[in-house]
Design a protein around this nucleic acid. Structure first.
Lengths: 98, 98
DNA sequence: TCTATATGTGGCTAAAAGGCCAAATAGGCA
DNA sequence: TGCCTATTTGGCCTTTTAGCCACATATAGA
C-alpha cells in the first residue's frame, strides 16, 4: 500500500476518532446549539472539568471546534456545522444495517 | 443527563469508533469495490491475518459489514453502502476546518 | 496586592485497543 | 482417515485512552 494512502487513511481516522466518544459527541451537540464556556459544558457532560478540557483540546486539534477567550472564560464553538452530518451518517448506518 | 441520552450517545460513538482506525477504513474501502475473502483483505491491509479477522468481526458487530461462508473461505461485503457517506463527511470537515 | 474564579497541564492508575503468535476449528479433497 | 488451506480464537504484551486529583496559570475585581 502506498505511503500516501496510509497517510490519508490515518488522517481520516483521526477525525473519526476525535468524534468516537460519547462525551465528545455530547460536547459537539451542545456546541451545535450554541457557543458555550467550559464550565457550562462540564455541567452538561457531568465529568470533571479537567476531563472536559482535555476532550475539548482534542476536538480543537482535530479541527472540529474553535475557542475564544473572553475575560476569565473560554468559549468554544463548532468550527464548521458540517460536522453535524456525522450524526446523520450514523443514523442512516444504524437504520440500514438492522 | 437522561440515561436514554447516554445510551444514544454510546451507541452513536460505537459506530464511529468502529470506523476510527486506518486499517478498518481500508477494509471498508476495499469492500466498497467488491466482496472479498479474508486473505485478500490481509494482502490489501498488510497485517497479520488474525488481526484482519478481528477488525472484521468488530466491523460486523457494529453492523457495517456482513459475511458469508462459501467452502473454505469467508466473504465479506458492506452491509450497506451508506457507510461510504462517512468518507464524504470526513472530507468536508477537513476542508471546512482549514 | 490579594483573592476568587475559570481553565489548562502534569501525573498517576485503570481500562481498552491493537498487534503478533500459537492453537483450535471447519471444510475440501486425496 | 489424514492432510492442507482458510479463518477464528485465546493468550500475551505494548500502547493508547480516559478519568480524577493536585497544581499551575490567567484574569477580574476588591
Amino acid at each position: 500500500m502506498p505511503t500516501k494512502t496510509q497517510e490519508r487513511l490515518k488522517s481520516q481516522a483521526r477525525v473519526l476518532k476525535a468524534l468516537a466518544h460519547p462525551t465528545r459527541l455530547l460536547l459537539v451537540e451542545e456546541l451545535a446549539r450554541q457557543t458555550r464556556c467550559v464550565c457550562e459544558l462540564r455541567d452538561a457532560a457531568g465529568v470533571d472539568i479537567s476531563t472536559v478540557s482535555k476532550h475539548l483540546s482534542l476536538l480543537r486539534n482535530a479541527g472540529i471546534v474553535k475557542d475564544e477567550k473572553r475575560g476569565l472564560k473560554v468559549f468554544y464553538s463548532l468550527k464548521t456545522p458540517c460536522v453535524l452530518n456525522f450524526f446523520k451518517c450514523v443514523e442512516s448506518v444504524q437504520k440500514c444495517s438492522k
